[in-house]
Design a binder for these strands. Sequence first.
DNA 1: CTATAATGTGACTGCCCAGTCATATGACTG
DNA 2: CAGTCATATGACTGGGCAGTCACATTATAG
Lengths: 233, 233
Amino acid sequence: MPKSTFFNLPEEKRNLILEVAIDEFAGKDYDSASISQIVARAGIAKGSFYQYFEDKRDLYFYLVELAAEEKKRFLARHPPPDPEMDLFDYLRWLLRIGMTFELSQPKLGWVAFRAIYVERPFGDDVLDHVQRRALDYYRSLLQMGVDQGSVDPEIDMDMAVFIVSRLFAEYGRHLIEREQLSLDDLERGNAAYRDLDITDMEEHLISFLERGLRPYPRTNRLRPDAPGQEPAP
Amino acid sequence: MPKSTFFNLPEEKRNLILEVAIDEFAGKDYDSASISQIVARAGIAKGSFYQYFEDKRDLYFYLVELAAEEKKRFLARHPPPDPEMDLFDYLRWLLRIGMTFELSQPKLGWVAFRAIYVERPFGDDVLDHVQRRALDYYRSLLQMGVDQGSVDPEIDMDMAVFIVSRLFAEYGRHLIEREQLSLDDLERGNAAYRDLDITDMEEHLISFLERGLRPYPRTNRLRPDAPGQEPAP
DNA sequence: CTATAATGTGACTGCCCAGTCATATGACTG
DNA sequence: CAGTCATATGACTGGGCAGTCACATTATAG
């Protein structure tokens, strides 16, 4: 953990340091990320950095935990309208909110992505734990879906968890690359992306998952013009 | 490109250098990968390295192209039994062969993964080109699927390409992590993984894709015991 | 104001790096 | 044999790095 001096810093200075550090660790390996660069860009002395953090590793862990924490907080701040809703409506919400987060703080997203999928410079249980918790979350969602009757019980649960978690995790980066969005612009709120097209794409993704997961004799919720099994209102 | 001296090297020495270099670039960012480490581990002098390659970048590009080339060759060496087969049978074959490759040369896979999804240290058209070709390949497959009637034409093609390509790309690494396989053991052919479970998982993945992509009034090829629409033989 | 504690500083250490180059070794030619 | 060319070598250069430390500055307390 950072030292108390770091948390005593005026908020603006603390945020600047974090911003610069996130930028550094978002774009580079742990080994390549440079404390010298961070202090230079944040306009503080090398020595000061070591008043705030034990060492490079300390900062790194803090950033990774920050990423997990911020995402959790963000989701909590935008709760689903109805916790009892159908699984696929829930997934739609989760994807929407997740993408809003990813598109507003893409660099934190990269820090997390690197830590989970690219490198674990310290072997590290913490990351294992964060990742496991995320997977368990998806698993419990899907299990609820099975119980609700929204997910075909014949589907292999491990595979379903893999598919949903990876697609959700990849989708943000895919979008950013596809639309050639600049991470800096996104963070500053300057990026002009077409919300309409994007929610369209999310719809396609959810629709695909629904086709893949819902039991066969299904109510075709996705083509409301098609003959369904629901009674007319 | 490497210099002619590199290709004139006795095969064994050349392969050792490549092996060590792949290991280095598989585990680290371009910036962190160390020529000094490579030459030390390969038992050659620093100066010799620069007889073989222009510079670090030269080696890096060569490795990335090698990865693409090797994968292409591997696929060509294991052609599908029937090029006219149903899309999902074709995808099953593609996944099977792709995974065989990924599990026998996981480090090359990592080099490619880093180059495509993690970092482009040189802006680089080459990588764009490789990636685009892969995506176009998936796209043409899926388009053929639509023409065959195996893929619902209502499905958004971009989304389908995204889903199939990412899941196929992620599946190998997922498997390796899940089964805690050691990359070194895999490369040496020492890893004991249970082929049975793995092909089971592949079946689950293909089955999911089929559910998600095939048109609705579908012949249920995946649960042959379920009532289908085919006439009894 | 003075004394003490907390915070800020940047020159410095030892280390590793990519890339160079003068020199050495070997291989082939006449 | 001598001469020429290709290849091998490792000490060396300049630069970046994480982390340290003696000292400077600022805040707090008595």
